[in-house]
Design a protein around this nucleic acid. Sequence first.
DNA 1: AAAACATGCAACCGCGAATTC
DNA 2: TGAATTCGCGGTTGCATGTTT
Length: 276
Amino acid sequence: MGRSPCCSKVGLRRGPWSTKEDTALTNFIQQNGEGQWRSLPKNAGLLRCGKSCRLRWMNYLRPGIKRGNISQDEEDLIVRLHRLLGNRWSLIAGRLPGRTDNEIKNYWNTHLIKKLNQSGINPKSHKDNLPKTTKKTKKQKKVAAATTTTKKTSTKKIEEKLISNNDINNNNNNDVPKTKVYLPKPIRVSSAFSRTNSYDSLTTGTSSSEGGEAAAAAAEVVSYVPVAWLPEFELEDANYGMVGGGAEDDFLGVGCIFSSDVNMWDKVYDEYLQLL
DNA sequence: AAAACATGCAACCGCGAATTC
DNA sequence: TGAATTCGCGGTTGCATGTTT
């Protein structure tokens, strides 16, 4: 259907935000909460489009935002998560409390690509840039062909790619046995959370959704972690499971771990990090 | 000292997904 | 059920600042 750009209206300001605008936006959101971005500028007396307000709030004004000085630990985590998730910055940001997707994206584009290249690692594939002498297996060739034929990444293709990467990683070290990859069968429990909900928003507890299954599930959400196709992960474990967002056939392998055991997440996440 | 070039990052844009009506 | 609207994401742009020539 298409819409005209929301900032195209005559009279709306663009470009860098002034201190006055920041204050007006912050005060309004503190009093009225986030959301309703479309009507927010008018109600807050700002000559900005809603999109611009949302962006400013999410990336700059929101409480708890950390700016600059990305630590070595954070950098390592970004690289590892990027290896697993690709350019899905919001998901990566969800694992780095206080960091925004925009900041991580910028950091990746300005620092990490360079750094990885200098280390001889292809930032896209996370593999060595050095020419390989080892031959690919038939399966790897097939998967590689399948994953490069189209631009859009369907669930199936992501699965294949990750399986492929996993196999290749294992082939780099002949002493390590091939790791079986479990493809989690997501359980769609609640629509209260989208697949892009952040770690922070989920750890704060329940949502405002009415009772029933959704609320029960929401109450049990312990945390949020991309447990995508983790090798040696048994997601059928009775103690925890996954909540996928969106249509099941669109499930991207990233979701909430829910459990009645509040310590479960730490356990799962420790295992997860070891596998990265 | 100044012009040219490089870098970093805030902000914008277009699109698809989700939600509302 | 489907059109309209809103939201959120990732890619990209453009400007401010720093560095080199």
